[in-house]
Structure formats: C-alpha cells, structure tokens
Nucleic acid binder design. Structure first.
Lengths: 257, 257
DNA sequence: CCCAATTTGTTCGTATGTATC
DNA sequence: AGATACATACGAACAAATTGG
C-alpha cells in the first residue's frame, strides 16, 4: 500500500513533480509519522540543488494531496500530515465531478453498503454506543410541528446515520458510507431538489431506526441488514419520485418523453 | 456536486491556495470542459495581481489534484483536465495509507460490491461483451503445466474481473470495484505474500466464471449474485489462511499469541 | 509590549527550455 | 532554420508570521 507512486512511465514530469515524488518516497522509506518535520526549505534547496521556487512548488504539490502542512516562524517548517477524510473526500469528489453520477448510481452502492454496515455492527456495540443512538432518536420522537422542528429532525436523522458509520471498525466502510452520503447531498442541492423534508420518509424513518437499534442490541445481524435494506430502498424510491417530478417541471409543456 | 470546495472556515489559506480555489470556482462557473485553455500565466498574473511564483504554485496545486495540465510552447498553456481514474486512485490511496486497512476490511466491501456488480450486469450485456468474457476464460480452460502458464492464467483471471467492472454503467461502482482490487494487491505485495498462484482458487475459479457467464447471459441476477458471493467468500478464506501462515512464520519460535 | 531570531511566504528580473509555424 | 509564444527555472531581495526573551 503506497501513496500515489502510480505514474505512467512515458509521462515526463516537471522538476517540482520529480522532487515531490522523491520527498514522498523519502518519507515512506524512513517511516516518518504524521507530526514529524521535514528538512527546511533551505536544506532541501541545497540537498536537491534546485532553486527555491522549484522546491516550494514541490511542497505545494504534497500539500495539495494532504500529505504535508507547513507553518511559518521558529519551530515552523514542513510537517508530515495524515490525509484528512475531508481532503480525501474532496479529492475523490473531483474525479466524480466529471463522471456525472446519477441518483441511481449512488443508491446502488448505498443499498448494499448500509445494510452491510448494520449487519456488522449487530451485537458489537457497547451499551454507551447504543444509548447514544437512542439519544439521537429521542430528539425527534414527536411529530414536528413547525418547519424549524422539521429541519432539526432532518439534521438529527442524518446524524444518526453518521454515528452508525462512525462506529464501524472498518475505515474503508466508514469512508465509503460517508462519501456516498456526501455525494448524494451534493447532487440533490446542485439540482435544486433539496434533501426532502419528506414526511413519509420521516415517519417510516423513525420506525426503522427504533427497530434497527433493537436488532443491534439483540445482535441480530440479519434483521439489522434487512431493516436497513428496506429503508434504503424506500429512500431511493422517494428520491427518484422527487427527481422525476422536478425534471418534468423543467420540460417544455407538451413535450414527449 | 462540486470539486473540493470543502474547507474549514477558520483555516487560513496561503495565497496560492486561495488563487487555486478561485480558479477552480471560475472554471466551474463558466462550465469549462476538459481540453479548454485557461488564461496564460501572464494573464493570470495581471488578473489576480500577484507575482509569477504565486500563480505558478496555484497551478501546481490544481495539477496535483489532476484538474489541469500545462504544456509549454506556442499553443501551450494550462488546460482543464478530466481527473483520471489513476490519479483518483492514487490520491485516495494516500488517505488509506494512514488508515492501516486489513485484508478483512477490504473483503468486507468486496463481498457486497462484486455480487451487486454481477447482479446488475445479468441480462444487460450484449453478445459481444459476453463473447469477450468467454474469450478470456478460454485462455485458461486447461490446467497450467508450467509456472509461466500459471502466471498467465492469474493475469487472465484478474482481467476477467476488470472486464466485468468495465461493463458496469455505474461509474461509482466501477471505480470502487477497481479501487478495492488495487488496494488488496498493494497490501498483499507490501506484506510479502504475493497474490496467490493458489491452485484451489484457480480450479474453483474457472468453474465459477463459467457458471457466472451462463447466469449473465440468461439474465438470472440472483444466480449471478450468489455465484460471485460464494467466490468472494472463498477467496477471502484462502487469503486469510495465507495471511495467518505468513504472519506466524515471522513470529519468534515459541512465542505465545 | 516590543524586539530579535527563525522559518515560510511573496516579489521581480532574467534566462532557459520547448513546441509551433 | 529561425522567429514566436508559451511554460519552466533560477537567484536575490523583501515581507509576513510565529516564537521566545
């Protein structure tokens, strides 16, 4: 498992890119950990025999990848940095920006990952963790009266999902769950159909969360899987409904299709 | 869906980073497509009122993210570039470099994604595509005699998987399937237990691929799903076996655990 | 509060490399 | 081959931020 060493062989790299690769390899060879300091700019200049600007560009490349951070002042310098989830999400989002994902594409993934998450958590949560989940559910056990309350409930329900992901011991699963949720949110807002303060989804939502927590506590993995699978299918259906409604609104009247 | 605009509010950005963000936003606003040219360095210098070095660092940042490329010479300049899958894989790999994924983590994902891929392809492939799959299978229908043949068969079997992913109409699924396969390969080599020229996996492998293609042609999604689910479970089991064998070899003799 | 030391950040002028015509 | 247009690289000077006295 190695940081971005992937590079087509024939591709000619600019000098800053070469330097960035060398530094990266150097860091890995020495097994430097996040927080440790790289040689200063001036040291790198003499070490690589290159101009200051070139070295700085190399460091910027590493910084853009989230692998280092730099601070000014005494005790400052360039430091190895653990790539944050936010950075990874943003960088991967750039890729999919050009891929034109659909709602269906994202739900195809969510419909298998979320149930798997639920199943893997069943029987493996502490009482504290389960209590925390129930705590969030309690925040919207009563039907919302105002639109303000509705909004709060929506946030709480998203938080419930985020907490589940957080509890997974699998970093890959955790990341993918959150990434797909983010992509979905991005797409919905960018297309103008804001994430549904959908009454039906909420009501069935509360019910499913209660049953899910029961299954998690009881260690019934298959029940947990089924509950979340049904919920995802339902959410997908409602989302698709809203999508077509909105798309049709923007079609010229009388248009076929 | 928006490229890496995610940024903590309090975080102070260096000027090149600011410029990079501005250029990115500018490109998106104008809906510039891959291949289109950004203003030249000198134009950017006057437009942003900053020195050459600063602008150059900004461009390096965008280049590191895979969003632009620059070419020298007349007609050269900085061009919008579609983030490649290789780049996206490498950047995301950087994130997981610090997360210490296990074989189990990766297989937990593969065990749900690969069957889903198979199910979604059932009945949706053209005769040409199915023929292409059968073509690859034919390359190792006979048991390997030499280690060279064994290696070829291994490559062909990986290719079979890659082709399946390629045929998915879902870019997200396609990426995730390939990414997880790459991560698995990276981990196995970095830990020294090279991807198994495992006889058992091969023999059951050939069988499962034949049955899979039949299910795909027949449009039996559930059969396809089951076949690949079983294969994944089997592969996971064999991999785990090799993992423990190898780990034990490196423990001091007589050590407990 | 200010001053000095240290390290990154920014600027500008100049020169070189590279691809196109 | 030579002129042109562009990015690339260098070097020296100056600015800004942070830390400690």
């Amino acid at each position: 498992m190695s940081p971005a060493t992937t590079r087509s062989i024939t591709e000619r790299l600019s000098r800053p890119q070469q330097v960035a690769e060398k530094i990266k390899a150097w860091v890995m060879e020495n097994g430097w950990e996040p927080g440790e300091r790289l040689p200063s700019e001036s040291e790198l200049i003499t070490r690589f025999g290159m101009a200051k600007g070139t070295i700085r560009e190399a460091i910027r490349i590493l910084e853009a990848q989230g692998l280092v951070r730099s601070r000014t002042g005494p005790g400052g310098g360039v430091f190895v940095h653990q790539v944050s989830e936010e950075r990874a999400t943003a960088l991967l989002g750039n890729y999919f920006y050009f891929q034109h994902l659909t709602i269906d594409d994202i739900y195809q993934i969510r419909e298998v990952l979320e149930p798997e998450l639920a199943a893997s958590l069943a029987g493996n949560l502490s009482e504290d963790e389960i209590a925390a989940l129930e705590d969030v559910i309690a925040r919207y056990s009563e039907p919302a009266q105002t639109t303000e309350e509705e909004r709060e409930q929506h946030v709480a329900s998203l938080k419930f999902h985020a907490m589940l992901a957080e509890m997974s011991g699998n970093p890959l699963l955790r990341f993918l769950i959150r990434f797909t949720a983010n992509m979905l949110a991005d797409i919905t807002v960018s297309r103008g159909f804001y994430a549904p303060p959908n009454r039906e989804l909420f009501e069935t939502g509360l019910d499913y969360q209660l049953r899910l927590v029961a299954a998690l506590r009881g260690g019934d993995a298959e029940a947990a899987r089924t509950i979340l699978a049904n919920h995802m299918r339902n959410a997908h259906r409602l989302m698709r409904l809203q999508e077509t409604v909105l798309t049709q609104r923007f079609l010229p009247e009388g248009s076929i299709i």
